[in-house]
Design a protein around this nucleic acid. Structure first.
Lengths: 224, 224
DNA sequence: TCTTTTTTGAAAGTATTACTGTTATATTTG
DNA sequence: CAAATATAACAGTAATACTTTCAAAAAAGA
C-alpha cells in the first residue's frame, strides 16, 4: 500500500495554476508553506507578499505559479479531495458487504485527518483544518458557475458521487442519496468546526466525533 | 398577527454597529441597499464606496454606522435569524403535538423565503439569498472565538437551540439532537446552494425541496 | 422660532492589497 | 559551455479599507 500510495500523483485541473507547482522546489515550497500560513493567519489576511517573505521568495515569483490566492485555495482543496478520493477508493475496494463499505467511506470523510507521511511537502492534518475553515469560500463566489464549468470542483463532486453510489447499493429505495451524501460530507466539516468554536450547538466533542453522529444517522435512515 | 409582527422590533447586538441604522433614514437605506448590492455583486466585491455611490451618500457616512463590511454582514445575518426566530416561535406556539410542531419548525428554517411585506426596508427573499451564499463567511474567520464571546452569533445559536428542544420533545432518547438541529439548519442552506449551482450532487430541484429531504430524514431518525 | 446639537457630505490623506512589468542574476538543460 | 529558463529585486498602478477634517444641512430643544 505504501508503495502504491507513494507512486500516485495527484492530478489537479491545470486551469488552477499558471505553472504546475509540483515541477519545482519553489512550487512545492509554495504549497507547503501556504498551507501553514493560511492555517495560521486565515485566508482573508493571507497574501502572496507575506508568503514570499516566509519562504524567502519574491511576491512576483509566486504569481508565476498562481494567478491569485483564490486559485491557490481551490488548488489546495482539489488536492485534498483528490487525496481523500484515493483513500476512499483504496479503503473501500475490498468490501463485499455494502453496509460495511459505506461505514468505511463515511469514517474516511468524517474523521479527523492525520498527516500522511507519504506526501513530504503536504501536511494533511493542517490542510484538513483549512478545508474545515475555508473550503466553502472556494465556491461561495459570484464566479461559481463559470468555475464549476471549468471543472474547479470536479474532484469534490466525484467524491460525493462515490458515496452516493455506495448509499444506493445499501438501500436502492432511498430517494435522497445525493443530498444525503453531500449533506454528510459538508455537514461533517461543519460539525468539526462547531466542536471547536460553537460547542453549544453540537453534540460532538472529544469523545463523540462527527463520525459517531453520522454512523447513527445512516443506520436510522438506510437500514431496513 | 400582522399587528403583532408590525410592532416587534428586531433586537440586534449593539456591538455590531457604531450607530443603530434603524434610528435614521440613511441607516435604513444602508440596510436596504446593502442587501441588494451584496446579492448583486457578491460580498467580496462589495465595498462601502460602491454602496455610497448607489445610495448617493459618502463612504464616510456609512462608516459612521458600521465599522466595516464584515460587521454589516453579521448585522444582516443577525437580523435574518432574529426574524426567523420570530416566525419560528409564532408558528410553533399553538401545537400540542410535538411532531407536528417539529415539522412546522423544520419547514420554516428550510423553505425558500418570500419577502415579508411587513418590514418595509428589508427584502427577506433577497436576504435569504445572501444567507445561503455568504452566511458561513461571518464565522469562518480568525476572530470567531472573540466575536462569539461578544455575542455576534447569539441569535443564530438560539434558533438552533429552539429546534433542539423540539427534537428532544419528539424523541427524548435520541442522542444527537444538537448536531441534528445544527446539521439541518446549515444543511438546508447548503442544499439550496447546490440546487442552484451544483445540481449533480443534490436531489433537490424545483419539485423536491430541501424541506422534503429533511422531513423524510427526521421521520426516519426520530419516529419510533 | 431661534439656537444648539447632531448628522451628513465632500475632499484629502494613509497604508495595504493585488496585482503587472522590467531587468539583472542565478540555475538548469541540452 | 551556451542557451534557455527560472527567480529575485524593484518600480509602478489602481483599488481597497479605512481615518481625518471641515463645512453645510438637518433635527432637536428651549
Amino acid at each position: 500500500m505504501d508503495q502504491i500510495l507513494s507512486n500516485i500523483k495527484i492530478q489537479i485541473n491545470d486551469k488552477l495554476y499558471v505553472k504546475d507547482p509540483e515541477t519545482s522546489t519553489l512550487g512545492k515550497k509554495i504549497i507547503e508553506e501556504s498551507i501553514i500560513l493560511i492555517d495560521s493567519i486565515g485566508f482573508e489576511d493571507f497574501t502572496f507578499k507575506k508568503l514570499g517573505e516566509k519562504i524567502g521568495s519574491n511576491e512576483s515569483s509566486i504569481y508565476r505559479y498562481f494567478e491569485n490566492k483564490h486559485k491557490l485555495l481551490v488548488y489546495l482543496s482539489s488536492w485534498y479531495w483528490s487525496w481523500m478520493e484515493y483513500r476512499l477508493v483504496f479503503a473501500t475496494s475490498n468490501y463485499s458487504d455494502s453496509w460495511e463499505k459505506l461505514k468505511k467511506a463515511i469514517s474516511i470523510v468524517t474523521e479527523k485527518v492525520e498527516d500522511d507521511q507519504k506526501t513530504l511537502h503536504i501536511n494533511e492534518s493542517i490542510l484538513n483544518k483549512i478545508i474545515i475553515a475555508e473550503f466553502t469560500k472556494t465556491f461561495h463566489t459570484k464566479e461559481v458557475d463559470q468555475e464549476n464549468k471549468e471543472g474547479f470542483y470536479f474532484i469534490y463532486k466525484r467524491v460525493i458521487n462515490r458515496i452516493t453510489t455506495i448509499i444506493n447499493e445499501v438501500n436502492p429505495d432511498y430517494g435522497f442519496s445525493k443530498s444525503l451524501a453531500s449533506n454528510i460530507v459538508e455537514g461533517a466539516l461543519h460539525q468539526h468546526f462547531l466542536k471547536d468554536h460553537m460547542k453549544t450547538i453540537t453534540d460532538c466533542n472529544q469523545d463523540i466525533s462527527p463520525t459517531h453522529f453520522y454512523f447513527d444517522l445512516i443506520e436510522k435512515i438506510l437500514k431496513k
